[in-house]
């Protein structure tokens, strides 16, 4: 039975070192979700917290200081104790999004790109952390987060390990399955293969991306707002997720 939920409940997981959780909560709330921060330790102790939620967001930051490579320990925590629950969450048709560090973690858990595919997020080709604004073209019609987007998103990146890499088989498969969700339409900032900024899984429910659409929700956040720039906000992406979740 399907019940329309007006404000789907979204969980934003804060691991030690997560720092864009409040940005994500703001974006989800503006998009119409009922968003809550849950600590990683709490969700690991009580996986049933996921049962009452319709959306899951893994936000940006430096979980566990990224000391052993970005997102690796966050992913290890999730896959050691939460693999079955996360699979069930997606199987129930609930949308999941990982941004920046959350994307790095989703890749390491294997939820992205999906079974038998191999991808990673490595150090930027120029070797440095960089914070700058980029433009993203929504590509995938499979991905529930991007399918309805008709305009590019302008938003910042802020990462040192955002270079998307994968083997040829995986790239071919991502292309043929329409799993490339977002591409950089401004100059590629980190050397990602095929200008890939974000990918989804084969169900289209799980999206991971390096840039931060949650930091461009209101017009005033754009650096050229003062010069009259309007548009390109990231709100639509979160609204798409909320719309999907509210129809579960």
């Amino acid at each position: 039975m399907t019940i329309a939920i007006s404000r789907p409940r979204a969980l934003v997981v804060r691991a030690p070192g997560t720092n864009r959780d409040s940005d994500a909560v703001f974006a989800l709330e503006q998009a119409g979700a009922d968003a809550h921060v849950v600590l990683l330790s709490e969700i690991l102790e009580t996986p049933s917290l996921l049962h009452n939620a319709q959306m899951l967001l893994l936000p940006g930051g430096f979980s566990f200081a990224d000391a052993l490579g970005a997102g690796r320990l966050f992913a290890l925590e999730l896959s050691t104790r939460l693999t079955a629950e996360l699979a069930a969450f997606v199987a129930a048709g609930k949308p999941v999004i990982g941004i920046c560090n959350g994307f790095q973690a989703l890749i390491r858990t294997g939820l992205l790109p999906g079974p038998n595919l191999k991808a990673a997020l490595g150090p930027n080709d120029h070797g440095r952390f960089t914070c700058e604004w980029v433009q993203l073209q929504p590509v995938s019609q499979r991905c529930i987060w991007t399918a309805d987007l008709d305009a590019d998103i302008h938003c910042p990146i802020a990462h040192g390990e955002g270079r998307f890499v994968c083997d040829d088989t995986t790239l071919a498969s991502l292309r043929s399955n329409d799993q490339i969700a977002l591409r950089y339409s401004s100059p590629n900032p980190n050397g990602s293969v095929a200008d890939i900024a974000g990918i989804c899984d084969t169900t289209g429910l799980v999206l991971g991306l390096m840039p931060h659409p949650e930091d461009h929700i209101v017009q005033r956040q754009h650096p050229q707002f003062i010069r009259g720039h309007r548009g390109g906000i990231g709100l639509g992406l979160f609204q798409a997720g909320v719309r999907h979740a509210s129809q579960l």
Binding site: R20, D23, C131, A158, H212, D215, I217, Q221
Partner: peptide
């Protein structure tokens, strides 16, 4: 550009 000046929005 080495510093994140966007976090917190």
């Amino acid at each position: 550009r080495r510093f994140d000046h966007e976090v917190l929005g």
